[in-house]
């Protein structure tokens, strides 16, 4: 089984579960299902942020010289 494809399909299914669950649920459950519905978006945004952060740390490291640390 293709893992990236499975991961995306699972994310889509979780989102569908959240969207459907919100229609059925009330109260605190609403927030849980909203979280599930928005999970792919949140995960995507988190991945973008992490990659951007990693890249900026790498860039910063590239600008450092031995002299900077002496």
């Amino acid at each position: 089984m293709n893992w990236p494809l499975m991961r995306i399909t699972l994310l889509a299914l979780v989102s569908i579960l959240g969207i459907g669950g919100m229609l059925l649920a009330d109260g605190i459950w609403d927030w849980l299902f909203l979280g599930l519905a928005a999970l792919p978006l949140l995960l995507g945004a988190a991945m973008l942020l992490v990659r951007r952060l990693k890249a900026s740390i790498r860039d910063w490291c590239d600008t450092q010289t031995v002299a900077d640390w002496e």
Binding site: I8, L11, V14, I16, P40, L41, G44
Partner: peptide, 13 residues
């Protein structure tokens, strides 16, 4: 591809 993967579930619904 990235955005498509993120909105796939919603778009299917």
């Amino acid at each position: 591809n990235f955005i498509g993967a993120v909105v796939l579930g919603w778009a299917l619904v």
